[in-house]
């Protein structure tokens, strides 16, 4: 299969899934359907060529462990929605923008530049942090902020569906 070619049925399928998940989680997709579907096409292209759905508007390294922060939804989505009413790509927008009450401009890049990135996964770094007196460690989903106290993070975030590898040790 040519990874550059993404077929339309696949785009429609993922678009519907994302729309449903957004609705259930209190998020909003950009109401400009053509623009949004084009981003979905980019997500699928990245999934095919890198093996993970890296942000379409950022240059992925091809190494998943270096790009955990920009697997969609990226860890920058929530702060960008708060500050600018849209994620960096504008795949997700705030409620006000989705309802046409506000418009967005370009969102500045929040991800550190190549030279300033932390290479190891957050779990790896934080699991070496000293244990304290709590009976269980507390894990934080880097995508949505969900917290839970258990031996290991869950396989999938029950709130935003991010995978286990995107959790970090919080306490």
């Amino acid at each position: 299969m040519n990874p550059a070619v993404v077929d339309e049925t696949e785009i429609d399928r993922l678009f519907k899934t994302l729309k449903n998940e957004a609705g259930n989680g209190g998020y909003f997709l950009n109401p400009d359907v053509d623009f949004t579907k084009n981003l979905v096409r980019g997500l699928l292209k990245n999934e095919h060529r890198y093996g993970y759905s890296a942000c379409p508007c950022r240059l992925a390294s091809g190494k998943k462990e270096e790009d955990l922060d920009i697997i969609c939804p990226c860890i920058y989505r929530d702060p960008d929605l708060n500050d600018f009413g849209a994620c960096y790509c504008a795949l997700y927008v705030s409620e006000a923008v989705a309802k046409g009450k506000k418009i967005t401009g370009p969102v500045p890049e929040r991800r550190p530049p190549r030279s300033g990135r932390i290479k190891k996964s957050a779990i790896h770094i934080l699991s070496t942090a000293p244990l304290n007196s709590l009976p269980l460690p507390v894990w934080r989903c880097t995508v949505c902020g969900y917290l839970c106290a258990r031996e290991q993070p869950p396989e999938i975030c029950p709130v935003c569906k991010a995978k286990k590898e995107r959790f970090e040790r919080f306490i």
């Binding site: 981003l39 980019g42 379409p56 950022r58 240059l59 504008a90």
Partner: peptide
């Protein structure tokens, strides 16, 4: 640009 990016397009 990036081939996948909406603002680039």
């Amino acid at each position: 640009a990036l081939s996948t990016c909406g603002w680039c397009a």
